[in-house]
Amino acid sequence: MLAIYDHGYRIQTPLRSLFQDRSVEGLTEPKHSRHTPGSEEHLTDDAENFFHIDPEARRKQPAVSKDAGKAYEETRQAGKPKPIPILSASKVMTSPVQTISPENNLRQAWLKMEEHEINQLVVVADEDRALGLITRQEIMDHGTDSTVTIAVTFQKRMIVAAPETELPQIATIFVNYPVTAIPVIDAKDRLQGIITRSDLIRLLINSAHIESWA
């Protein structure tokens, strides 16, 4: 499940109304069919002219034994690759999350990002409620030595995921919307972790070992 948080509170607003969708619109169905009217019926009539199927011949065909059918199915399945398990947010998120208070200034936020080699911080209130995000780029836009407080610059609306949100849903958000990180928040509004674009890239690179993540 995905949701929008505004100033630390869940709001019932569609994602598209708050974040510009940058995905390409899906192709529409063609208005006219490539088949001409009656073409299928015409092919059927022609087939009957070329072939005569004896109903008795079908009854005379030997039945395939259950053992032979089972052996065939086992052989067919043996050549198939194992399906990749669908991971949830709780399996790939980074935890604990690096956070900062809105009363801190941009320089303090920059130094913390440099210390931990990260590109964003979750802004939290005194009770550790996630209020929003501050990114490296936003700090650079104002100046890394700026004493402006985070309260007037951070992103107060953010897309968040639940611990059980499946990874394909999260990947879709990164593709369709201009977000760099998605905090993971449980049903009691507690910050559990964070997933970034970099996390997904690392996951793709290490996809050969993805079974061990599930």
Rank of each mutant, 00 (worst) to 15 (best):
33 S>A: 11
34 R>Y: 12
34 R>F: 15
35 H>L: 15
36 T>D: 11
37 P>A: 06
37 P>Y: 06
39 S>P: 02
39 S>L: 01
41 E>V: 11
43 L>T: 11
44 T>D: 14
44 T>M: 15
44 T>Q: 11
45 D>H: 14
45 D>E: 15
46 D>R: 08
47 A>M: 14
47 A>N: 11
48 E>P: 03
49 N>A: 15
49 N>W: 13
49 N>C: 08
50 F>S: 15
51 F>S: 07
52 H>A: 10
54 D>I: 13
54 D>V: 12
54 D>K: 08
54 D>A: 12
55 P>F: 12
57 A>Y: 04
57 A>F: 09
60 K>F: 07
60 K>A: 11
60 K>C: 04
61 Q>S: 07
61 Q>T: 01
62 P>N: 09
64 V>K: 01
64 V>N: 01
64 V>F: 09
64 V>M: 08
65 S>M: 04
66 K>M: 14
67 D>I: 06
68 A>M: 10
68 A>R: 12
70 K>P: 09
73 E>S: 00
75 T>M: 03
76 R>G: 01
78 A>E: 04
79 G>D: 05
79 G>C: 04
79 G>S: 07
81 P>S: 14
86 I>M: 01
86 I>Q: 11
87 L>F: 00
87 L>K: 03
88 S>P: 04
90 S>A: 11
91 K>H: 04
91 K>R: 14
91 K>Y: 03
92 V>N: 00
92 V>W: 05
94 T>W: 00
94 T>V: 07
95 S>C: 02
96 P>Q: 00
97 V>G: 00
98 Q>H: 04
98 Q>T: 09
99 T>K: 06
104 N>Y: 15
104 N>K: 13
105 N>H: 12
105 N>R: 10
106 L>R: 08
108 Q>N: 15
108 Q>H: 13
109 A>W: 03
111 L>P: 07
114 E>K: 15
114 E>S: 14
115 E>F: 13
116 H>C: 10
117 E>Y: 06
117 E>Q: 09
118 I>E: 02
118 I>H: 05
119 N>Y: 13
119 N>M: 09
119 N>S: 15
120 Q>K: 10
121 L>R: 03
121 L>M: 06
123 V>T: 10
123 V>M: 10
124 V>P: 02
124 V>W: 07
125 A>G: 12
125 A>L: 05
126 D>W: 11
127 E>F: 05
128 D>A: 08
129 R>Y: 11
129 R>Q: 12
129 R>A: 12
130 A>P: 09
131 L>V: 01
132 G>N: 01
134 I>Q: 02
136 R>A: 06
138 E>H: 01
138 E>N: 06
141 D>F: 02
143 G>K: 01
145 D>V: 12
146 S>V: 02
146 S>C: 03
147 T>C: 09
148 V>T: 14
150 I>R: 14
150 I>S: 04
150 I>T: 05
151 A>M: 06
151 A>Y: 05
